[in-house]
């Protein structure tokens, strides 16, 4: 009640001053009152009713028409007041949701966390940045008892929270694969069954899985509809597409995946990406794969992690720091 009484006092004073002589300063006190009413949650119709009663008190000779018009105005402002209160409560709800999503994003981050392994003779750089709070891209490194390194990179078709939830499932399906089943084609065949069985029919996953054998430096890989990566051949200085055919995960239960092999020479690089990388839009259109290759060439003398960091920074700048899609880039380099 005290708030209302204070306000009444303040309003009376400000209005009297202004009615006496119409100075800028008196008008300014009205602005201050306006801010205070918002703070104290005093509705527009309450302000009009306050205005009317104070006017009656300090200028009782005002014509009735003015008072009637204020009653009318009060009625008009009623709807506005309701809408404003609704907006306030929506804002509050939005704030709650936002903090819940933040927590979820943190949980996801912990769930999907993967360490880049230390493999003799290899240098690895990786970056993955979500467009929104939750990431629908995912990459994962595993090392088996023969020191072979498995690398999975996946992208859920669909964005945001549903995509992120789906990714967590993939991670657990991968963790539960038997140790000796890390051949890329059988990893994808297993995951395909899991996704087909468990995921909404309009949700699909593209995935690339590779296995690096540090003993003979053979990289074997298979792809489930994933954007092809690049292979850099140090001897010729050429970049080639790592073409691999295979259907998206989750479309057909009995899909078979073809496995490819590549012998990796010193200085060669394997570059893996999510389609966010080549689907980036700039003012002139899409980022072409050639542009990406140019960026890699420009940074090729750097450490693997610096290369991927620099490329991300450049692409981010091209898109005015507004990622449209999640972004993942991995670079595996065989040391000379």
């Amino acid at each position: 009640m005290e708030i209302r009484e204070n306000m009444e006092e303040r309003y009376r004073e400000a209005l009297s001053t202004y009615l006496k002589d119409q100075t800028e300063q008196a008008l300014y006190s009205g602005q201050k009152i306006s801010r205070k009413t918002i703070e104290d949650k005093i509705s527009p119709e309450e302000i009009i009713s306050l205005h009317k009663s104070i006017l009656m008190e300090i200028c009782p000779d005002t014509t009735d028409k003015v008072f009637h018009s204020l009653d009318f105005l009060l009625e008009v402002m009623m709807g506005y007041g309701i809408a404003y209160r609704e907006l306030q409560s929506l804002r509050h709800q939005q704030q709650e949701l936002k903090s819940e999503i933040e927590i979820a994003a943190n949980v996801q981050h912990t769930l999907l966390d993967t360490d880049i392994p230390d493999v003799d003779g290899l240098e690895i750089g990786a970056i993955s940045v979500p467009a929104k709070q939750m990431n629908g891209d995912y990459y994962h490194f595993v090392q088996d008892e023969n020191e072979c390194m498995g690398i999975g990179i996946a992208d859920v078709i669909g964005k945001g929270i549903p995509a992120a939830l789906c990714m967590s499932m993939i991670k657990y399906a991968m963790d539960s694969l038997p140790e000796h089943r890390h051949a890329p084609s059988s990893v994808l065949e297993n995951l395909n069954r899991v996704v087909e069985h468990n995921v909404d029919p309009s949700m699909f996953i593209t995935m690339f899985y590779g296995l690096y054998n540090p003993h003979n430096h053979v990289f074997s890989y298979a792809s489930a509809g994933h954007e092809p990566g690049f292979y850099y051949e140090a001897a010729t200085g050429e970049f080639k597409d790592m073409d691999a055919k295979g259907l998206l995960l989750g479309v057909e239960k009995k899909t078979k995946y073809k496995q490819y092999e590549k012998s990796v020479e010193p200085g060669d690089m394997i570059i893996l990406l999510s389609d966010g990388v080549t689907e980036c839009r700039t003012d002139e259109g899409f980022i072409e794969r050639e542009t990406l290759i140019e960026y890699i060439q420009k940074n090729i003398h750097l450490k693997a992690q610096e290369i991927v960091n620099n490329i991300y920074k450049q692409l981010e700048k091209l898109q005015h720091f507004q990622l449209r899609d999640d972004f993942t880039l991995i670079l595996i380099k065989r040391n000379v």
Partner: peptide
Amino acid sequence: MDSTGLGVFVGLFKS
């Protein structure tokens, strides 16, 4: 068309 569109067409195809 981005991958969301692709999802729609796969869903339609299956249906």
